[in-house]
Nucleic acid binder design. Structure first.
Lengths: 337, 337
DNA sequence: TTGTATGCGTTATCAT
DNA sequence: ATGATAACGCATACAA
C-alpha cells in the first residue's frame, strides 16, 4: 500500500508534524532534519493523499467544465484550452455534458450531486437567465459564451452583437443583398442566438437593405444536420438567398453541402459565413469564412476568473470581453481553386 | 455552510449512525425513523460530502480519461460516449491530455500526481509497449485503441489489421492499382500504425499488386495538416497514386483538399478512404469513405472493464474486440453530385 | 433496530 | 524547531 505521513514519520524517527512541514516547504526546519525526512520520503516513495488533504482543507483542486456536448468541435477546442490552462493553475478538470437537457442542466447548476466535489464550475450554458436564477449561488461559477451580464456571475464572452454585425457586413460588402441567417431559437431566450440575430439585423439596417427580403431561420442544435436541412429548405423556398450567415461553423458546413446538393455553388450562387473558426473550415471545399473566437484567451481568462473567485467568493462579478476577428476565406468570395 | 451527518442527527434527534443507515438505504430501519430522518435531511438540504466518503471508503468515484488531444474529433466523440457510459455507471470522468508528450504520458501512467485520486484510468495511448512497462501496475488501467495484447492490461480495440485490409481491399475493388498509405510512424513502434500498415500490405499482396509501386508515408500527428502536406508531396512525386488509404479521417480530409489544390479530383483521379467515421466526413465534399469504429461500444466496454477491475484487481486481463465496418461514400467512387 | 467509538491521512493548533 | 493531538465528514465494527 501507499505510504502515509505517519509511515514516513516513523521511518525517519520524527513526528508527523515535521514531515508535514517538510512537505509544505515550511521555513523553520533544520537542514539535517529536512534531509533526513526527505530521505525517508523518497525511500518510501511517499505521495500525499489528495483526498485526505482535501477533506482537511476543504479544497478539492477540481474544476467542473460543463458543456452541452463535448464532441462539438468548438467545445472540444475550448475543452483543450481549458484543461491546459487549468493544469497550469493546478486544477484538474472534470467534463460534464448536459446533452441539451434543460433539467439536467439545471441540476448540474445547482451542484446537486457534487456539492463540495468541485471548487468551481466553468459553465457553457445553453441556458436562459431564468435557468440561472437561484442556481449556482452556492459555489463559484464562471459563465462562458453567454453574455447577458447581470452582475451576478463572472462572464467570459465575445461581443456577439458586434460579431454577427461583422459577419453580415462582410456578406454585404461582397455584394450580397438577399441574406438569410440560420441559428435563431424562437421560443427560447438564450442570449447568444438573440444577440446574433440582433447583430445580423443591425447590419442589414445600416446597409439600408430591405428587411422583408431577409429570413431568420431557427436551428435547434447548431449541427451540420440542422444547417443542411435548413439550407435545403431555404433554397427550395420562394425567396432563395444569395448569402447566409450561420451562427456556427457546423451549421455552415451543413449549409455548404446542401448548396452543392441542390446543384448550386458556393460562393458563386450563395456565399456562406459561420462563427467559431473550427479547423474543419480551413480545409473544407470551399474553405469557410468565419468569425474566429480566441478560445485560448477565453479559457485562460475563465480559469483565472474562477481561481480568483474561489480565492475570494465575495469579489464583484467580472465581465470579460474576448476578442473576435473576421476571417475571409473562399466561401464568401475568394475564388475557389 | 453545508449540513453534515451530525447536523442531521442532532436535528432529527437520532444518532449519526441512523442517518448514515438511511442514506445508505440500509434495510433494518423502522419506517417512522426513516421518515423522521428523511424529513431532517430534506429540511437541512443535506448532501453527503463525497470527499469524506471517499477518504473513508478509499474509492473516489473518479475515472481518468487520458487522450493525446481532446479536440481531435475521434477522441471527443469517444469522450462523449465515455462520459455518458461512466455517468450511468456512477463515475465522474476527468479528462487529461498528454499532448504528444511521451514523458508527460509516462508520468500520467505512473499516476504520479494523482495516486489515490482516481479509481481507474482509461488510457488512449500513443505509447509503445515499453512505455507501458512497469507503469500503471499500481492502479486499474484499461487501454483503448492499442491492440498488442500482452496479458497485462485490459484492452478494448478494433482489429486494426483487418480494418486496414478492408479499407485497402475496397480501394482495389474500385479499380485502383497505384496505392499509397498515409499514417505510418517509422522509428516508433506504436501498435496502431504498425498494424494498419500490415493490413494495407496484406491486402496488396492478396490482390497480387506490385508492392514496389506502393508508398507508405509517415504522418506524425494524424492531422488535417499532415494529410495535406503528405498528399501534396505524393502528387508532385515521381509516382502519384490513384488511391490513398489514410490511417485517420483527419488525414483524409487534408488529403482531399490537397488533391483539389493540385487541380485533380476525388475520386476520379485519386480515391481516398480514412478511418474513424467522424461526422465531418459525411458532410464533406466529396463525402468520405471510411472505416467506422463503434465508439459507443468501445466506451461502454471500457467503462465496464474498468469497473470490473476496480471491483476485483486480480481478475485476468481481458481483450475486447470492437466491431468495425466499411462505409463506402463518394470519395472512393460513388458519383459526386 | 439503533447508539458509541474508531480511523481514513491530512493540516493546524497548542504546547514545549 | 519540533512533538502531541484535535478536527475535517463519513462508514462501520462493536456494543447495547
Amino acid at each position: 500500500m501507499a505510504a502515509t505521513l505517519r509511515d514516513v514519520a516513523t521511518y525517519a524517527g520524527v513526528s508527523i508534524r515535521t514531515v508535514s512541514n517538510v512537505m509544505a516547504g515550511y521555513k523553520h526546519v533544520s537542514e539535517t532534519m529536512r534531509a533526513r525526512v526527505q530521505d525517508a520520503i523518497t525511500e518510501l516513495g511517499y505521495r500525499p493523499n489528495p483526498v485526505a488533504r482535501r477533506l482537511r482543507t476543504g479544497k478539492t483542486g477540481l474544476l467542473a467544465f460543463v458543456v452541452p456536448e463535448i464532441d462539438v468541435p468548438y467545445f472540444s477546442k475550448l475543452a483543450r484550452d481549458v484543461i491546459q490552462a487549468a493544469t497550469q493553475t493546478g486544477f484538474h478538470v472534470m467534463t460534464d455534458q448536459t446533452g441539451h437537457d434543460r433539467s439536467r442542466q439545471r441540476e448540474l447548476l445547482r451542484g446537486a450531486d457534487r456539492m463540495m466535489l468541485f471548487d468551481g464550475v466553468l459553465f457553457c450554458p445553453l441556458a436562459t437567465a431564468e435557468d440561472l436564477q437561484g442556481a449556482g449561488c452556492t459555489q463559484p461559477l464562471v459563465l462562458l459564451g453567454e453574455h447577458t451580464f447581470d452582475g451576478r456571475f463572472d462572464h467570459v464572452a465575445i461581443d456577439n452583437v458586434q460579431a454577427a454585425n461583422d459577419a453580415t457586413s462582410h456578406l454585404i460588402a461582397q455584394g450580397r443583398r438577399r441574406l438569410a441567417a440560420i441559428g435563431a431559437q424562437p421560443g427560447e431566450d438564450f442570449a447568444t442566438p438573440l444577440q446574433r440575430t440582433e447583430g445580423f439585423t443591425k447590419a442589414l439596417i445600416a446597409a439600408g437593405l430591405d428587411l422583408s427580403r431577409t429570413q431568420v431561420c431557427p436551428a435547434a442544435h447548431y449541427s451540420r444536420e440542422d444547417g443542411y436541412r435548413t439550407t435545403a429548405a431555404l433554397i427550395s423556398g420562394p425567396n432563395p438567398p444569395d448569402g447566409i450567415f450561420c451562427y456556427s461553423d457546423l451549421l455552415a458546413m451543413g449549409a455548404i453541402r446542401a448548396v452543392f446538393d441542390a446543384g448550386l455553388n458556393v460562393p458563386e450562387d450563395i456565399a456562406i459565413i459561420g462563427v467559431d473558426n473550427i479547423e474543419e473550415g480551413q480545409f473544407a471545399r470551399p474553405s469557410l469564412s468565419t468569425i474566429s473566437l480566441d478560445t485560448r484567451f477565453i479559457a485562460e481568462k475563465a480559469v483565472a476568473a474562477i481561481a480568483a473567485r474561489i480565492e475570494d467568493p465575495s469579489r464583484p462579478a467580472q465581465q470579460i470581453l474576448a476578442p473576435h476577428a473576421l476571417i475571409a476565406r473562399e466561401s464568401t468570395g475568394k475564388a475557389e481553386t
